[in-house]
Nucleic acid binder design. Structure first.
Lengths: 209, 209
DNA sequence: CTATTTAAGGACCAAATGGTCCATATATTG
DNA sequence: CAATATATGGACCATTTGGTCCTTAAATAG
């Protein structure tokens, strides 16, 4: 198991020799889709080769091994999720609107066929976080980051007098994070969107004034 | 792939021939532990043989194949969980006490080392529920049963005038189920018990008078 | 154009996978 | 005790696993 350090040349300085023909990011995205629907152990090399349209040689040269490719896919998934959160909780927007958008997004992603598709992060947390330190660190830091953003939004809401009496941003944030991750789990049974949306609304209404 | 129908003789009527030397239920329990910590795809036959102390022949004769054994293990896990819920929500006990016990149990099982151990049902839901119909049915029916029990307890609490204004048992039950399943996910990061307990308390306090 | 450097793709590999089968041991019934 | 029925455990198997390597193709720099 040899790990190859791929250090891309500084921009402007082209690498010598034949340049790579495929788009690395696109390959990572394809791989992410496969891991997403089959899990880490459930994904075999041929699955990845088919999805990325790469040969074994190219895949191993570019990514090292299955585990490294998985980590890249996971990082991409996490990056996308964090970017979305960053957008939803943009401090220039109303914090309650942000919370509503955040919950609505989860409702959308965890109901019907979307729900059945599941979540790479949650699936990975359950499958590997306990045994794989590199995965464990990513999972921990993701939840921490998410909780932080939610807590920030709640703090702003509180400062604006929009929270119900006695609601503390930090513990309410933990509740909301647990709730949305729970949606990802129960979402595997493909619940109706209207039901999930009503449930989320009911929860949020307990926290806002 | 041959499925063998194992129909135990009615008690008193012993089966002919050499009786089984190992305890089937104990073997299922051992297998459950392995699937619990490694997942379905992550568990190899030798892992199961080691844990159950059976030879391949005995294991296949008794259980058919890996998948059938997994289903038995999952059914046992679900049975244990339902029995616990049945106990906690015993209608002869105070419904609020029942809800507190229910949440406290999840807090206990999802914090520290227990949390890192994870949950066979949630892991299975994420790994297989979408692809494996037999698993999917079990997952769906489990969540439905749990939600029902929680809703019943909330209904009794409401009838006793113990719920906060405007709290509807059915949607509050969905919230609590999502919350505890979310705890199972975030529990993979081994959070401190005190924190999780405080979070659960905060949530419940929003629903009771 | 030439030399260099790298990508590409497939042949190849050892190990592990889930699963079958058979010879043997042994507890039961009559 | 004899006959029967079944558990046991290991040998065995085809397939698949993740991973390596080598030949060939091709784009670059000089």
């Amino acid at each position: 198991m040899v790990h190859i350090l791929v250090m891309r040349q500084s921009p402007g300085q082209l690498p010598r020799g034949r340049p790579r023909e495929f788009d690395v990011d696109a390959a990572v995205e394809r791989a992410m889709d496969v891991f997403w629907s089959r899990g880490y152990h459930g994904t075999a090399l041929p699955d990845l080769l088919r999805a990325t349209k790469l040969s074994r040689g190219s895949l191993y040269a570019a990514f090292g091994d299955k585990h490294s490719l998985f980590l890249r896919a996971l990082d991409r998934y996490i990056g996308d999720a964090l970017a979305r959160i960053e957008f939803e909780f943009d401090p220039r927007k109303d914090s309650i609107d942000g919370l509503r958008a955040y919950l609505a997004g989860y409702v959308e992603r965890t109901s019907g066929a979307n729900g059945r598709r599941g979540c790479l992060l949650v699936a990975t947390a359950m499958e590997l976080a306990g045994q794989d330190a590199e995965v464990g660190r990513r999972v921990t830091s993701f939840f921490k980051a998410m909780e932080g953003r939610v807590a920030d939004a709640l703090s702003r809401a509180k400062a604006a007098g929009k929270l119900a009496d006695g609601v503390e941003p930090s513990s309410a944030a933990r509740i909301l994070v647990c709730f949305v991750e729970g949606l990802r789990v129960t979402g595997k049974t493909a619940p109706a969107r209207a039901t999930s949306q009503a449930t989320a609304d009911t929860l949020l209404d307990r926290f806002i004034r």
